[in-house]
């Protein structure tokens, strides 16, 4: 079976093309995947041309990292200590946000099941660039504990561009903080441009994502 066929097989009823009758009686053909989503192919967001200003903006980005509060795996248990008195990541400009729109860092806290990966991709694409991904623990690097599981991915970098990896199973909050420090360093040096890398290699990433997410049910890129 071709991959598109597999995706068609799992296409939900409400996402199929259909005709609806408008209140005025006219018949409208709708393709929910096209019409209900923002699916324009994303564009690369160039850094600011003037170096000094870009440097200043990068400083601000580095000192104000808003993390999406999406606990994808075991590692999310170490997020509460991070933002509570013991480690108090607020001191370092790290804050949690509840919505992907306002976040610019995504902590993939460990293993990703296929089902979560789909949501992670959606959340990631809803984040605004420049955005950063911090991969936590063995699972994101090479599968970790679940290297032979049928439902978890082994290498995160095939599905999302990753800025910083933190070794550990699970990494302690201090290691996470060290990861944030590294991320800050990268941002300040202007090296954290992975969001553009994702857009450049969008087709490759999409092919990888679609290979394992059979129940795709969304447009290729959904903002």
């Amino acid at each position: 079976m071709k991959e598109t066929d597999i995706h068609d097989k799992f296409l939900h009823e409400e996402n199929k093309k259909r005709e609806v009758i408008a209140p005025d009686g006219s018949i409208i053909e709708i393709d929910p995947l096209q019409d209900y989503f923002c699916d324009a192919r994303p564009q690369i967001n160039e850094p600011f041309k003037i170096k000094v200003i870009e440097k200043f903006l990068n400083w601000a980005r580095a000192e104000s990292i808003w993390v999406l509060g999406f606990g994808t795996g075991c590692g999310s248990i170490e997020i509460p200590p991070l933002v509570t008195p013991r480690f108090d990541a607020f001191r370092y400009g790290v804050q949690m946000r509840a919505t992907p729109r306002q976040s610019n860092a995504f902590i993939i806290s460990g293993y990703l099941s296929v089902k979560t990966l789909k949501r992670v991709i959606r959340s990631y694409e809803q984040m605004q660039s420049p955005k950063y991904v911090i991969a936590l623990g063995s699972c994101t690097i090479n599968g970790g504990m679940y290297w032979d599981s049928y439902n978890t991915i082994n290498r995160l970098d095939h599905y999302l561009p990753v800025d910083v990896y933190i070794a550990g199973c699970m990494p302690r909050p201090e290691a996470l903080l060290a990861g944030f420090m590294k991320l800050k360093e990268l941002i300040k040096a202007g090296k954290a441009e992975k969001a553009n890398e994702y857009i450049e290699n969008l087709d490759w990433y999409k092919a990888n994502q679609k290979k394992i997410i059979r129940d795709w049910n969304m447009p290729d890129y959904n903002w």
């Binding site: 293993y111 099941s113 089902k115 979560t116 504990m145 679940y146 599981s149 049928y150 439902n151 978890t152």
Partner: peptide
């Protein structure tokens, strides 16, 4: 199912001592 890792399947292919960390 967002956290489904197929543990019970993984246990089948791990020795008892290997089940322990898993």
């Amino acid at each position: 199912g967002y956290l489904h890792r197929g543990f019970e399947k993984l246990f089948e292919r791990r020795k008892y001592i290997q089940v322990f960390p898993t």
